[in-house]
Amino acid sequence: MTHWITVISFIALLVSGVEILISHPRFYWGEVGNSGTPPLFKIPIPSSRATVPTGYGYVLPDQNGWSRYLHFEAAWVLVLTGLVYIISGLWTRHFRKNLFPAPADRKWRAFRSVVAKHLRLAAAENEADSRSYNVLQRVTYLLVIFVLVPLVIWTGLAMSPGFNAAVPWAVNSLGGRQSARTLHFFVSLSLVLFLVVHVAMVVLTGFASRMREMITGVAAVPQERT
């Protein structure tokens, strides 16, 4: 349930985020940056603002009104859903049981063997394997849940003038407002990368049955989860 709400809000955030980015596809480091200062890097796309020197001879239509409304509403949905997920995950010990690497896997050797297996594209060897998350999945999911998502929220909030007035260290510790914006871009990019790999893995491991399980919450082959 929380998964699908998160999917919807993530897609809304991605679409509106790209739309907002188009109004100024330049990135800076530090507190300030604008069309009159040298950028850290530019994204070679046309802009929705005539004031941005893009090299293109035309300006895209401005869609920031609804994009910004949607971006911040979807952010609220993501944050509130995330809180429900974290609290229920702690309550049901989901993180400890299913996501924190099993004792045997908390070693470099175990980690390396899983990575090697993935590189050979070996399928899950037995039922038990395919029923629980392997160590690579666990580390990735933990990274997304406890590092990337909190970071994307933090760097997003650090661009809000109202929030920065209340909590100045949130932006100062990142090196300034433009640094926060640049970091927000890269963390978002990492989340998109995760999404692509995640969806690809689901498709590779049997789309129909995985979807049936995720939507109903019931395993296709009824058996104890290990």
Binding site: H24, R26, E31, N34
Partner: peptide, 12 residues
């Protein structure tokens, strides 16, 4: 203070 535009740019 900083002028912060909704487009993303800013100056002090």
């Amino acid at each position: 203070t900083e002028v912060v535009c909704e487009e993303g740019w800013s100056y002090v």
